[in-house]
Simulated scan of single mutants.
Amino acid sequence: MGVLSGLEDLLRSCAPRVLAAVARRYGDFYAAEDAVQEALLAAAKQWPGAGVPDDPAAWLIRVAARRHIETVRSEQARRRREAIPQDPLPEVRGDDELTLLVLCCHPALSPPAQVALTLRAVGGLTTAEIARALLVPEATVGQRISRAKQRIRETGARFAMPPDSEIGERLTGVRQVLYLIFNEGSTASSGGSLHRVELSAEAIRLTRQLRDRLPEDGEVAGLLALMLLTDARRPARTRPDGALVPLAAQDRGKWDRAAIAEGIEIITDALKRFPVGPFQVQAAIAAVHDEAPDAAGTDWPQILLLYRLLEALAPGPMVTLNRIVALAEVDGPLPALRELESLPPAIEHRVAAVRAHLLERSGAREAARDEYRRAARLTLSLPEQRYLESQASRLS
C-alpha cells in the first residue's frame, strides 16, 4: 500500500508540469490532457515492475508527446494520408503552470467551472478532493470539468499568456483557485497527512509569479502574504507522530520567522497602497496571530474587528465560523454558542469541533465530549480525527 501510495503521489505531483509542457508545445489543452492521462496510465502500469525513471516528468512528457503525435498523425492520415514531421520534445518551463492556470480561468467559463478545471489541471486534485474543497457533490464537479474542457475547445483558445489587459478579466478566478490549492495543501481535506506540501508550495510559487506579473494588484499581494504567514506555522502544526497541534499549543519557536517577516512586509505595504480586499484582510488576521509572542498575547479584539470587516467584504460560512471563534475569545463562550446555530450543514464537522470547544469552556464536559466525537466521525482527515477523539477521551 505504501509503495502504491508513493507512486500515486509522484504521478500527481508531476501531472501539472507535464500537462503544461505538452499543452504549451502543441497549443491544444484538450488534446494535451488526453495524452497526459494516457501517459499517467502507462506509468501506473509500468513503473511498479520496471522501476521509476530517474526523471519521471521527462518520461511522462515523452510518452504524452508520443501519444499526442500518434493521435494527430492518425487524424491527418484519415483526412490527407500524410504523416506529420517529427517534432522536438516539449520542455518544462518555469512559467508554464501560470500560463495553464490563466488558460483554465478563460472568461468563456463560469467561475465555478474555472475553479474546478484549474484545481484538476494545475493543482492535480482528484474530483473527490475538489468536491470537498468546494463543498459541492462529486458528480457536480465531474460535470463542471467535462463541460469546461469542451468549452475551451470550442473557443479555440491556445496555450499562451494573454496580454495584461485581458489578464484582469480572469484575476478573480485565478486568485480563488490559488487560494483553494494552497488550502488543500495546508490542511488536506482527507487522508492520513495533515499537509500536502507539494500543493501549498506550488500555490506559493505560482502566486509569486502572478505578483511579479501584476505588482500593482493589492489582492494578489494580500494572497501571497496570507500564504506565507499561514505556511510559516507548518513546522509546529504536527508532532513527530503526525498528531495535530492546535494554534494555541504550538511551539512558536518552530515557526518560520523569515516567511513571517516577508508576509508582514508584503501585507503592510499592500494595505498602505491599495484598496482593502478580502485576501488583504485575511493576511492581516494571520499577521496578528503570527506577531503574538504567545497564545495569551493574541490581540483578539483586533482579530474580531478584522473578521467583521471580512464578513462584510466576502461573507461565507467559514468566515462566520472564524468570527464566532474570535467572539468567544472576546466575550466568552455563551454568546458564541448561540450564534453557531445559524451555520449551514456544509461545514458541519468544523461547527461541531468549535461547539465542542465552546461547551468545554462553558463547563458542559459531557456535551463537549459528545460533540468532539461527532466532529471526529464527520471529518475525513485522519490527523483531525485522532485529535478530536483524543479531546473526547480527555473528557471521559
Rank of each mutant, 00 (worst) to 15 (best):
Q143V: 11
A15H: 14
D269I: 04
R80V: 11
E348R: 13
R361F: 06
T71D: 14
L380N: 03
M1P: 10
Q37M: 11
Q76M: 13
R239E: 13
Q391N: 09
P345I: 10
A236S: 04
Y30A: 09
G49L: 10
T118R: 13
A232C: 07
R308V: 00
A295T: 04
A57Q: 11
V220N: 08
A367V: 01
L244H: 13
V52E: 07
A42F: 15
S362W: 06
L224A: 04
A65D: 12
P345T: 11
G168S: 12
P48H: 08
L41I: 15
L117S: 02
A131E: 03
A31D: 13
L359G: 03
L229Q: 05
G185K: 02
L7N: 04
D294E: 12
V174L: 06
A346Y: 01
T320K: 14
L229P: 00
Q250K: 03
Y30C: 05
R355S: 03
I260L: 14
A58L: 09
G142E: 04
L310G: 00
A21N: 02
A188E: 00
S5T: 12
Q385A: 01
Q46H: 07
P111E: 15
P335S: 09
G316Q: 01
D269T: 12
A31T: 07
V18K: 00
P88F: 10
D294N: 13
L306M: 11
R25N: 05
S110T: 15
L60V: 11
A328F: 03
G94P: 04
M1T: 14
A221D: 13
A23K: 04
S74H: 13
R93C: 06
S13R: 14
V36H: 11
P335L: 05
G123H: 03
K45D: 13
Q76D: 13
Q76R: 15
L382V: 14
Q209W: 07
D290M: 15
R361L: 12
A203L: 03
L134Q: 12
A243F: 08
F29E: 06
A259T: 10
A312R: 15
Q46S: 12
L117V: 03
L7D: 02
A77T: 07
E219M: 02
C14G: 09
L89V: 08
G242M: 12
V177F: 05
L100H: 09
R369Q: 12
V325Y: 15
L334V: 14
L321G: 01
D212K: 13
N322P: 00
L321P: 01
D299P: 02
V115K: 10
A287C: 09
L178V: 00
G191H: 07
D231C: 01
